[in-house]
Design a protein around this nucleic acid. Structure first.
Length: 312
DNA sequence: AATTCGGGGTC
DNA sequence: GACCCAGAATT
C-alpha cells in the first residue's frame, strides 16, 4: 500500500484500524448495489438530488422518483426554470416536502451564484459553498464532495455512525446527538487518499444499510465480524429502547401531509376546509395546519373569495 | 440541546 | 403498532 503524503492526519490510525477500513472497502467493491446515482455517468446534480431525496427516506422509495426527476430536470437550470409547485408535485409521497422546496431554491441559487454548475469541487471553498445552499447540511455537503467530486470528506450519516459505533466501540446504536469526539474519531478513520476515502464512505454506508442494520444485524455476512467489538460482546443494547416515538395518527404532521396530498393531486385551487376527505380533522387543527403550510410557503391562498388554496 | 418536519415498509 | 430511514433548520 502506497504511503500517504507528508501531511499527517490529525490522529494516527493504527494498522489494525486500517485493516478494518480496507475490509469494508473490499466488501463494498464486491457487494455494492448498482444504484443510478452511483454510476460513472451520473452528474454532480444527479448526486445532489439523490442526497436530498435520501435524507430520512429509504433507497427503495427514492429510486423511481429520482429517475423521473432527472429525466424532467437533468440540470439545475432546468429545475430553476420550473416552478416550486411543480417540484413539490413531482416530489410525490417522498415525505418532508420542504426538501422539494429547498431543492428547487437550491437549483435557483446554483444558477444565480454558480453559473448553473453544482459547487463543491474546490478543495478549499467547496465545503462552504455547498453548506451555503438551501437544504444542504453537514452530511449532504460531505456526501456531494465525496460522491460527486471524488474528494476526501468526512461523510457521517446514521449508517456510518452505527457501523463505527458497533465495530469500534461496541455500542448498539449511535447517540441522539453527534459529539465532537465522535466526529473526530470518524474523521481519523477516513483514509488520506481520496479514492479510498470515497470508497470507505460509500462502503461503510452501504454496510450499515444492508448488513449492519439497526434492528437485526446480519453479522454472519459482515466483513468486520472477526474484529467487531459489539459482536464479540454478544450484541448488547438492542432491547433497550426508551426512544419515545412521536405519535403519528392525528398529528399536525399527518394533517399537513393530507392537506398537501389533496393539493398535489388537484389541477385547480381547492377550498380545503370544505373537503369530505378531511372531515375527520378538527377545524382548529385544520386551520392551524393550513396556516403553517402557508407560513412555510408550501401552499398559498390563491382565491380569497372561494377560500381556495394551491401549491405555493 | 430539543423540536419540528412525511410517509411507508418492516418486524 | 413501534421502529427506522444517505438530515436540516429553527429556537
Amino acid at each position: 500500500m502506497p504511503k500517504p503524503p507528508q501531511a499527517a492526519p490529525l490522529t494516527r490510525v493504527a494498522p489494525h484500524d486500517e485493516a478494518m477500513v480496507e475490509a469494508v472497502i473490499d466488501w463494498f467493491v464486491a457487494e455494492a448495489r448498482d444504484l443510478p446515482w452511483r454510476r460513472a455517468d451520473c452528474t454532480p446534480w444527479g448526486v445532489l438530488v439523490s442526497e436530498i431525496m435520501l435524507q430520512q427516506t429509504p433507497v427503495a422509495r427514492v429510486e423511481p422518483v429520482w429517475r423521473e426527476w432527472m429525466l424532467r430536470w437533468p440540470t439545475p437550470a432546468a429545475l430553476a426554470e420550473s416552478t416550486q409547485a411543480d417540484a413539490v408535485r413531482a416530489w410525490g409521497r417522498l415525505g418532508y416536502p420542504r426538501r422539494a422546496q429547498r431543492l428547487w431554491e437550491c437549483a435557483r441559487v446554483i444558477v444565480e451564484r454558480h453559473g448553473g454548475d453544482v459547487p463543491g469541487a474546490d478543495p478549499d471553498l467547496g465545503e462552504a459553498e455547498l453548506l451555503a445552499l438551501p437544504g444542504i447540511g453537514d452530511y449532504t455537503a460531505a456526501a456531494v464532495r465525496a460522491f460527486a467530486f471524488g474528494e476526501r470528506a468526512v461523510v457521517l450519516d446514521t449508517n456510518i455512525r452505527r457501523v463505527i459505533g458497533r465495530a469500534w466501540h461496541g455500542q448498539a446504536l449511535p447517540a441522539a446527538h453527534l459529539t465532537k469526539r465522535e466526529r473526530d474519531f470518524a474523521a481519523a478513520l477516513v483514509p488520506e487518499v481520496a479514492t479510498e476515502a470515497v470508497a470507505w464512505s460509500a462502503g461503510s454506508m452501504e454496510l450499515g444499510a444492508l448488513v449492519c442494520t439497526a434492528r437485526v444485524a446480519r453479522c454472519e455476512e459482515c466483513p468486520l465480524a472477526t474484529e467487531c467489538v459489539w459482536l464479540a460482546a454478544g450484541k448488547p443494547g438492542l432491547e433497550e429502547a426508551p426512544k419515545r416515538t412521536q405519535a403519528w395518527h392525528g398529528s399536525d404532521r399527518q394533517v399537513r401531509g393530507r392537506v398537501l396530498a389533496v393539493l398535489r393531486e388537484a389541477s385547480a385551487p381547492v377550498n380545503v376546509t370544505g373537503l369530505a376527505v378531511l372531515e375527520d380533522v378538527e377545524p382548529g387543527q385544520l386551520d392551524r395546519c393550513i396556516g403553517s403550510l402557508v407560513d412555510d410557503r408550501l401552499i398559498a391562498l390563491v382565491d380569497e373569495q372561494k377560500g381556495a388554496y394551491a401549491l405555493g
